[in-house]
Amino acid sequence: MTDRDALKRAAAEAAVAEVEDGMVVGLGSGTTAETALHALAARVAAGLRVRGLPTSERTASLARALGVPLTGFARDPVPDLTIDGADEVEAASLALIKGRGGALLREKIVAAASRRVLIVVDDSKLVPRLGVGVLPLEVAPFGSQATLAHLDAMGMRPVLRRAADGAPFVTDGGNLVADCPTGPIADPAGLSARLLHVPGVIETGLFLLPTLEVIVATGHGTTRLPDRQQR
């Protein structure tokens, strides 16, 4: 295990320690979220009763393999707690970029429906301003060329994501992903609103939830960034 893996595990275990018996837990996607899922599975094996609401088919498959019971929105429309990772966290505002794993739409649906959201990261994901890496956008396949042209005219410089075989990457919902190298994002809320007005853009990787908490693993242990209401 690398030092970075150890940090992720420490933060994930701190988040999973907050899961209580009987909860419906949103199960995030990505490497850190999978680390949290392994920690949750260990507690389930020890007798914890939960139902997991997965944000991707990959997460659902792993949960089944680990013995974590699953549910859906028809039965449990309001998860008690969602645990997920992030690609970038703007420490001052708690604005996030997510979706570089390709599950941004489902991740946002589950997070927005949840009573609490715990984001688990190591300190390499903290940034002074979002836009260090690309901003993912989930895009409808129909007319995607027109959508990408519109985005390009906005200065977004979209690049259609490719799978390992060179074909367009397709999300669990059957959509495409355009990665945009934005550079520093001065107004995440304003940019998100403009992007969502582009026909064919289904969702953005900008996560601007009104209340969430971030658990950060550092070389000195874990720390918590308070939600916006506590600032």
Rank of each mutant, 00 (worst) to 15 (best):
A186W: 08
P181G: 13
V198W: 01
G219S: 10
L126A: 02
P141H: 12
M156H: 00
V127Y: 04
T218A: 06
P181C: 12
V201P: 02
T204R: 00
R161G: 11
H197A: 15
F142V: 15
A193Q: 13
R157F: 06
D172A: 12
P188Q: 05
E203Y: 04
S144A: 15
R161K: 15
L126K: 01
G205W: 06
I215C: 10
P184I: 13
T218R: 13
H150V: 09
V214S: 10
L208I: 09
D152C: 04
L126H: 11
F142R: 13
D165S: 11
R162A: 13
R129Y: 00
P128D: 09
C180I: 11
L148F: 07
G143F: 08
L160R: 13
V159N: 14
G143S: 13
L137Q: 02
P168I: 01
E203R: 08
F169E: 04
V132W: 08
L195F: 02
D165R: 11
L209E: 03
G131C: 07
S192G: 14
G174W: 09
P168A: 03
G200H: 04
A163D: 14
H197C: 12
M156L: 15
A189M: 06
V177C: 09
A186F: 04
A163Q: 02
E138V: 06
V201C: 03
H150M: 14
T211D: 08
H197K: 14
A149G: 06
V216T: 10
H220I: 00
F207C: 09
F142S: 14
L151A: 05
A193L: 06
M156K: 05
L176E: 11
P128I: 02
L130A: 05
T218H: 05
L206A: 13
L160H: 01
R194Y: 03
L195S: 04
V201E: 12
T222I: 10
G133Q: 11
F169V: 00
P136T: 01
G200W: 07
R194F: 10
V134L: 12
A217Q: 02
H150T: 15
P181Y: 12
R157D: 15
A189N: 02
F142H: 15
A140S: 14
L208S: 05
V214G: 11
L209Y: 14
F142N: 11
H220M: 05
A140Y: 10
E213F: 00
A140N: 08
A146M: 12
D172Q: 11
D152A: 15
L137E: 00
M156N: 05
L212E: 08
A178M: 09
G200C: 09
C180D: 03
D172S: 12
D172L: 04
G183D: 03
F142T: 15
E203G: 03
A149T: 14
A193Y: 02
P199F: 09
H220A: 15
V170Y: 06
D187P: 04
V198G: 04
P141A: 07
G133H: 13
G155M: 06
T147D: 09
E138G: 07
G131Y: 04
L209V: 08
A178H: 02
L137C: 03
V170H: 09
V216M: 09
L209N: 06
P128C: 08
G131T: 01
G143L: 04
L137G: 05
L130W: 03
P210L: 12
I185N: 01
Q145N: 11
D187E: 07
P141W: 00
D187S: 00
V170M: 09
A149K: 13
H197I: 05
G173L: 12
A178W: 07
D187K: 00
T204D: 07
R161T: 03
D179T: 01
